[in-house]
């Protein structure tokens, strides 16, 4: 019982620590607020007119669920950055020498990401409503959608936690994240209908890319439309990613040493 209590309170202490950092590093705060707003505005007003989205009256309705999922996926990036800095600066050594719960360094950071993702989710929905997006599903579905978005963000936080522990510097964490996840988000149904892509890419974007499953689930829950098995599929993908990457990250953390 004591162990569990410490696991929770230690994670809380470290989550607060991670969150305090954000307003103190304006570039990070920008990443959670201004950057998603910029993305929404650029896509809606620059590409919006050129992209055909059959079945959606307004490109904003098509775009917003996609861009929200993309932003959630990158929200955990600060975890990779932070862990890699902690390793390099010897803080991980300090934490590992303290009588704290071993899990707290990782859970603290990923919990903090949930709060940050909730912040950018709120900002993006607000901006989306301004540029013409409208929820056209039931309130219950919207709430479920918000829950699913935060779950997606949490799953990617664990991927980033693992990345942060295996790379040698915050800079390479950055590169790693962009090379791995950025193409995945574009070769999906997030920004354009996959039908407009060449055949080989279309197969990947429509049928294989789990990111498309998540985006389609978000669309189903936020703007209605045929959900199929996407909501369940996306949930299962998230749980699977969490299971795999939290195991990998914890394993890696146990053996982590500075330099």
């Amino acid at each position: 019982m004591t162990a569990l209590r410490y696991a929770v309170s230690d994670a809380g202490v470290l989550a607060v620590r991670s969150l305090k950092r954000i307003p103190r590093q304006p570039d990070l705060l920008t990443g959670y607020t201004i950057q998603p707003v910029m993305f929404v505005l650029l896509f809606v007003y620059v590409f919006g007119g050129a992209i055909q989205t059959p079945g959606y009256e307004d490109y904003a309705d098509f775009l917003l669920p996609g861009i929200i999922v993309q932003t959630m996926a990158f929200g955990g990036f600060v975890t990779a950055l932070g862990l890699s800095e902690d390793l390099r600066k010897g803080l991980v050594d300090r934490f590992r020498s303290l009588p704290m719960a071993r899990s707290a360094v990782l859970t603290g950071r990923t919990f903090a990401d949930i709060a940050l993702n909730a912040l950018s989710l709120a900002v993006m929905i607000a901006v989306g409503l301004v540029v013409g997006f409208a929820f056209s599903s039931s309130p219950l579905e919207v709430v479920a959608g918000i829950g699913l978005m935060l779950l997606i963000g949490y799953a990617f936080s664990w991927i980033f936690a693992f990345i942060g522990l295996i790379v040698s510097s915050p800079e390479s964490a950055n590169a790693f994240g962009f090379i791995l996840i950025f193409p995945l988000t574009f070769a999906s149904s997030a920004f354009v209908p996959p039908e407009s892509m060449p055949d080989w890419l279309q197969t990947f974007a429509a049928d294989i890319n789990p990111f498309s499953t998540m985006v389609d689930a978000a669309r189903a829950l936020f703007v209605g439309g045929p959900a199929g098995n996407d909501v369940w599929g996306a949930t299962l993908w998230c749980l699977g990613l969490i299971a795999v990457f939290s195991t990998l990250a914890v394993h890696r953390y146990r053996r982590a040493v500075t330099r």
Partner: peptide
Amino acid sequence: IGLAGQYAAVDENL
């Protein structure tokens, strides 16, 4: 135990 290392293991953003 208390440990102070060769790196000043403190959080710069706190």
